[in-house]
């Protein structure tokens, strides 16, 4: 499949591991240049950049708290200075308030709103002028299985779907698409405190494809949605969940 991504510039948030790192490497394999950020571990981000190096693409990394308006603007500004354009944004950074509504602290709730909702808002707003100028753009946001099956802690993920649809409607005329990917139960390394209660893959035997997915299986959809061929797909949610939920 020709993705048409060679030479494009792809911004990925939270590109230190899991989906973020896998996406970075997949885009690099397609010949796309990378603009990667993290809030915490620059060492892990540099490791991602190192892994992308054999593909011969340019990789620029930076620290950015994606919930902070000024930091997002500064990071995007830096990226535009380095590359002259940003073609694809993958708002991969995520945070989840686990547990039921009564067990979620206000602090945890606000962190979830910040990373899952404010961040794609800020990042999209910052990159869209460049995309409009070049009459081409792809914005890819993340949802998740819990948003559909019901979890108060993922309220922000559903809200991000509303945001994605609005961007899709407003910017379609500039050849810019905005979509969501909704991973199901995926084998990942979790941040301490972000583990799934009951263990990874609990209840997976009831899913039509009765195993956990891999980040590479999600990344394939991300790359597809960013590709030239996906130019008529916008405002949609693509679930990569083994059939755990049918939209």
């Amino acid at each position: 499949m020709k993705t048409g991504l060679a030479g494009k510039v792809v911004l990925i948030t939270g590109a230190t591991r899991n989906h973020g790192r896998a996406s970075a490497l997949a885009f690099a394999e397609e010949g796309a240049h990378l603009l990667l950020c993290t809030r915490q571990s620059m060492a892990l981000l540099e490791e991602t950049a190192h892994l992308a190096a054999p593909f011969g693409v340019k990789v620029v990394t930076g620290r950015c708290d994606v919930t902070d308006e000024e930091q997002v603007k500064a990071f995007v500004h830096m990226g535009l200075s380095e590359f002259g354009r940003i073609d694809v944004v993958v708002n991969n950074a995520g945070w989840r308030a686990r547990g039921d509504l009564l067990s979620i602290s206000t602090e945890n709730w606000l962190a979830t709103m910040g990373v899952n909702l404010h961040a794609p808002f800020l990042m999209s707003q910052a990159v869209l002028p460049s995309m409009v100028q070049h009459r081409w753009g792809r914005i890819i946001n993340y949802s998740g299985i819990a948003a559909f099956r019901g979890s108060t802690g993922t309220t922000a993920k559903m809200a991000a779907e509303g945001l994605t649809r609005a961007i899709a409607r407003e910017y379609g005329k500039y050849n810019i698409t905005a979509n969501l990917i909704g991973p199901g139960s995926i084998e990942v390394v979790r941040t301490p405190g972000q583990e799934i209660p009951g263990g990874e893959g609990a209840g997976i035997e009831a899913v039509p494809i009765p195993r956990q997915g891999t980040v590479d299986e999600c990344t394939a959809t991300v790359v597809f949605l960013a590709s030239e061929q996906a130019s008529y797909i916008t405002g949609q949610t693509y679930l990569v969940n083994g059939g755990a939920y049918f939209l």
Partner: peptide, 8 residues
């Protein structure tokens, strides 16, 4: 977002 909260 309200839809998400409702489902939760």
């Amino acid at each position: 977002g309200m839809v998400g909260m409702t489902r939760g």
